[in-house]
Design a protein around this nucleic acid. Structure first.
Lengths: 334, 334
DNA sequence: ACTGGCAAGTTTACCGGTAACGTACAGAGG
DNA sequence: CCTCTGTACGTTACCGGTAAACTTGCCAGT
């Protein structure tokens, strides 16, 4: 055995009396060897406790990498956990491994991550969002590997895009509230400018409200991360400033926080105030009062992204832009 | 430039008029070169758009890998999302990359994942739980790399262990309910036998109740995954069978489902029925009624695991077993 | 008997770094 | 003037697999 005490192809070759290359072909399930050779090689591999070396494989030939990089804004987000799950399931079934990263909603942190991951020469990369630094784009273009941008659809992707339009989500809710006769509408958000996609929802929302003749009355956008407490206090702040009959929240967590505030102050939902969230987190559907929200097909997006990536790797012709539609699910809060 | 159109060390060396090795040393921030050489090499690297090749680096030398594998039971779990975040933050700050996997609470799936990840010759591996197949253990021992088992503490780890005792969590809640005078206690769980750690909590819970003289009256363990609906219907089934004054749930999601059931049936919590969860999910603390639960320091566990791993890699003496204690947080439901 | 063709291999030349070791040169010390 | 020492590099030999080209043996067809 080699000096590291670990068996390699050459050790198996020596054991079996064939060449290294034949062992390589057998272990990768290729052709060009007899059944007898196959069995002897396989037996020797088990006997010697051979562990394949994907480092050497990926290093030696350009297109042998089975590594895929995936970057999400925050790993603690329930939604992205499901996206990640969809990606991981689809890819691991096809023999790929996933290297993760998070960018904290920052294009700069994303570039830093891309720089790291590209140095591993992955087969492809999945990014979240459509906003990237010029450095990121250049790096990925030069690398010449498939790139899938998920979550926020873009018509001019770096390479491929899978998701839906955040802007349209906002429009849909704006129209929905207008149809329901809500006239004094507000918004509670978080992460300030850094969450570009939340901003897109707000922009669509404002546009739809303006179109309907009842522009957004007031908004409260916290610097915090979009959780329960910011929802609670954000609504408190907003209602202290403006009289409203409907509030659209950054996401379901914040909306639930808002509902808690309403309950604590005796504000009747939906009579006095309509509450709408975004995302479709599981908890929202078992609350005493089912939240009106936009359900995002998280796992499906992950799966579709993985499949688009692999299709491109296999040279199959796929579409560059895949729309995975969201669904407005009316609950009891609006 | 080389045939692939991408610059490598040799291209930079040619540009700069030094050797490949000197370029390598400069780019890795070593010693043995003049300031002038450093500047010229760095400039050439930028000019040629050099992208490091970690594949070659990790392949060429045994201890150069900056890859860490991390396997969790389910990527969709909110708790593990936070653990993953803790791991990722700590490791990426130190220049490591994380390769993820999920095993769906199955030791066999875990072994399949370990087999894949080990073939990338990572610097170390983080596993969730203490139950592994003999194949997994052998594979990791032979690989001779640091291994951290997190989440469920074990006194005889493969290598290192970071977490807490699930059994003790169960004991603590059992004693807590006994102290509060609950006499007819039940349990609602999920995932049947496959979630070994949930089983451990149940075992500790039963032991503590028996010790207190009021053994567990009844339990309902579903085959489903531990979510809101299984909590709802699990409690319904259990209460149809047995009269109870307290129920311990597999986790907070299920407990919240149980609370929803209580609300829908007019069961008064905690007067008629005490409800206790496990995990400390954020949503549980903003419900109309704060859930009594065990809060698990998820991010801290991830961070501690990452730090233990890196300490071992750097040859620093660290402890093999790190306890990250959980905290029983009494709410309004028990 | 000769040739062509195929299955079943072998041989060789890399891939891009890094460790280990070798060496040229400048300045210090005797 | 010569040796010694340290700095700043250069050279070489891998790491373990893969692609591509080449060889061998066997059989069928003419």
């Amino acid at each position: 055995m080699s000096r590291k005490g670990k068996a390699n192809l050459e050790d198996i070759a020596r054991e079996t009396g064939v060449s290294k290359m034949t062992v390589s072909r057998v272990l990768r399930g290729g052709t060009g060897f007899s059944d007898d050779t196959r069995d002897r090689v396989a037996a020797a591999a088990v006997r010697l406790g051979y562990v394949p070396n994907r480092l050497a494989a990926a290093f030696g030939s350009v297109q042998a990498s089975t590594l895929v990089g995936m970057c999400v804004p925050r790993l603690t987000s329930g939604l992205f956990g499901h996206v990640l799950d969809g990606v991981d399931r689809a890819l691991s079934r096809l023999g790929y491994q996933v290297m993760i990263g998070s960018n904290n909603h920052s294009a700069l942190e994303e570039e830093a991550w891309v720089r790291q991951v590209v140095s591993w020469r992955p087969a492809g990369v999945i990014l979240s969002g459509r906003v990237h630094t010029p450095g990121t784009v250049e790096l990925l273009r030069n690398a010449g590997m498939p790139v899938v941008e998920i979550w926020d659809l873009t018509t001019s992707p770096i390479d491929m895009s899978v998701g839906f339009s955040h802007h349209d989500c906002g429009v849909e809710i704006g129209q929905f509230l207008a149809r329901r006769g809500r006239r004094r509408v507000g918004f509670v958000g978080a992460l300030a400018r850094s969450d570009v996609m939340g901003q897109a929802r707000l922009a669509g929302f404002e546009a739809a409200l303006a179109q309907a003749g009842n522009p957004l009355v007031d908004k409260e956008i916290l610097l915090d991360s979009p959780g329960f407490y910011p929802g609670y206090y954000g609504l408190e702040t907003l209602l202290a400033r403006s009289r409203l009959d409907a509030v659209y929240f950054h996401n379901d967590e914040m909306a639930i926080g808002g509902l808690a505030y309403c309950q604590s102050r005796g504000i009747k939902v939906p009579e006095d105030l309509a509450v709408v969230g975004w995302g479709g987190m599981e908890a929202a559907s078992v609350l005493p009062m089912r939240l009106t929200t936009t359900v995002v097909p998280t796992t499906a997006i992950g799966k579709a992204a993985a499949e688009a990536l692999v299709a491109r790797l296999k040279g199959e012709a796929g579409q560059d832009v895949t729309v995975v539609p969201t669904r407005l699910v009316p609950g009891e809060t609006a």
